[in-house]
């Protein structure tokens, strides 16, 4: 790694940490999302430095693009305002910071500790690296995990449709009947749910 690369890495690392930190402390979820995009893009750039250009592109396209767009879309869909975060007890915050810091430290320690020649260290950037090699590996050696992953996506897709679909009229009545006599908070929540649903199209479209 040359000096120039090092400097680039440091700058990008600072940007990535800054983005992550701002995501953590931002009040408004939209701000958080945008800072996370910043952090992800910086990470993508680091991938470039680490001889992984294809991953970098995918990172930008899928992560910073698709996934984050989904986040923002949900926020818009639900028309969310700023988060009403109430601060925790001071002691709890201290313990939380200690736990998280300790975890990071220990992960790093564990990761860099490579005693002796247990790990073969390759020579710098990957020689003769081609994008097609990823494709060959993906559909060759890793064919089974690849297909499993596709199945996972399918299941997730179906699952989401089932989870989010509006309740059928019968189920709604049942839920309402079951909740009579429940606490007022729950009753209010149910009522709110019904109000939201009533603005949506009919059940048949939901399927």
């Amino acid at each position: 790694m040359s000096l120039a690369t090092l400097i680039a890495f440091v700058v990008l690392a600072v940007v990535a940490v800054f983005g992550g930190f701002r995501m953590l402390v931002s009040r408004h979820p939209v701000h958080s999302a945008l800072y996370l995009v910043l952090s992800l893009v910086a990470t993508a750039a680091i991938y470039l430095l680490l001889a992984a250009p294809f991953v970098a592109v995918v990172q930008v396209a899928v992560y910073a693009g698709a996934i984050m767009v989904l986040f923002v879309f949900v926020m818009m869909f639900l028309n969310l305002g700023p988060a009403q975060d109430v601060h925790d007890q001071r002691q709890r915050r201290i313990v939380t910071f200690a736990a998280a810091g300790l975890l990071g430290l220990l992960i790093w320690l564990g990761a860099i500790w490579r005693p002796g020649a247990a790990v073969t260290v390759g020579g710098g950037a990957l020689p003769g690296y081609k994008v097609e090699e990823i494709g060959v590996n993906m559909l060759g050696r890793y064919a089974l995990p690849f297909e499993t992953a596709s199945l996972l996506l399918l299941v997730a897709m179906v699952g989401v449709v089932v989870i989010v679909r509006p309740l059928l009229a019968a189920e709604r009545r049942q839920a309402a009947a079951g909740e009579t006599g429940a606490t007022t908070a729950e009753a209010a929540a149910t009522a709110a749910g019904l109000v939201v649903e009533s603005t949506e199209p009919s059940e048949e479209v939901g399927h």
């Binding site: 736990a99 975890l103 220990l106 992960i107 564990g110 500790w113």
Partner: peptide
Amino acid sequence: FTAGAVGVVGFAALAAL
């Protein structure tokens, strides 16, 4: 859960030392 993770990772990391 995090405390548990710290325990596992910490033991693995420091046991190597």
